[in-house]
């Protein structure tokens, strides 16, 4: 790549029109960035419906009665830590360290799976108490919002497992590196959505 060589040699860089199209890594990551932003726009619609419907309990249980803050705190810690290990995995990928990549991916996967297990447990407990999505508009919007985030995390776990298989079989070739970069963007974006989620749903839902 001539830009890399120019940067290393300290030469002045050519202008955008002289340099030609941006490297594929930049184009792919930028396109994925736009997808992530559109995904966040979709989440904003679910957030808006939850914010509108959160008092529409139809005589059923309210958030303050259902939510367990300790469990939410553990879920938050798991997801935050997995975002951190995902960042460390990206560093290991940049240094082309296979062992570091596997360790980072394993930690990310385990923490993400722990988050998902806690969330599924929470849903099961709520449904067992009769607080199912059919019970009230509040619960419908709650399950839609939190469930949609959970589905994203589950998809991320599948993607991470697939990426590790690709690293094992194909090694660090450019296409695999680009996919790994998109994965870490995806995983960090999910953590950002969770920040909004635990604040709006669990913390604001408990305060009157």
């Amino acid at each position: 790549m001539n830009v890399t060589a120019a940067v290393e040699a300290g030469e002045p860089l050519p202008s955008a029109s002289e340099a030609g199209p941006a490297p594929k890594r930049v184009v792919v990551a930028y396109g994925f960035w736009i997808f992530l932003l559109s995904d966040i726009v979709m989440f904003s619609a679910l957030f808006a419906s939850y914010a509108v419907l959160r008092h529409a309990t139809a005589g059923g249980p309210s958030g303050a009665q259902l939510f367990n803050q300790t469990r939410v705190a553990i879920e938050t810690a798991c997801l935050l830590a997995s975002s951190y290990t995902c960042g460390l995995m990206a560093l290991a990928v940049n240094s082309r360290s296979r062992l570091g990549t596997y360790v980072g991916a394993l930690l990310t996967f385990v923490l993400g799976a722990a988050f998902l297990a806690l969330e599924i447990r929470e849903f099961a407990d709520m449904i067992a108490q009769g607080a199912s999505p059919q019970r009230s508009a509040f619960l419908s919007s709650f399950f839609a919002l939190v469930g949609c985030h959970g589905v994203h995390v589950a998809a991320g776990l599948v993607w991470l497992a697939a990426m590790m298989a690709q690293v094992a079989v194909k090694g660090f070739r450019p296409a695999v590196l680009r996919r790994l970069q998109c994965f870490s963007l995806f995983w960090h974006a999910l953590d950002i959505v969770w920040v909004g989620l635990f604040t709006v749903v669990y913390l604001m839902g408990v305060t009157p």
Binding site: V3, V7, A19, Y30, R96
Partner: peptide, 22 residues
Amino acid sequence: TATSYNRAPGDRSIVTDKEEPI
């Protein structure tokens, strides 16, 4: 002196093909 390409989101620098210490 300005770089001619925008950086990819998630990258810390434009020079990503170079291996760097962890």
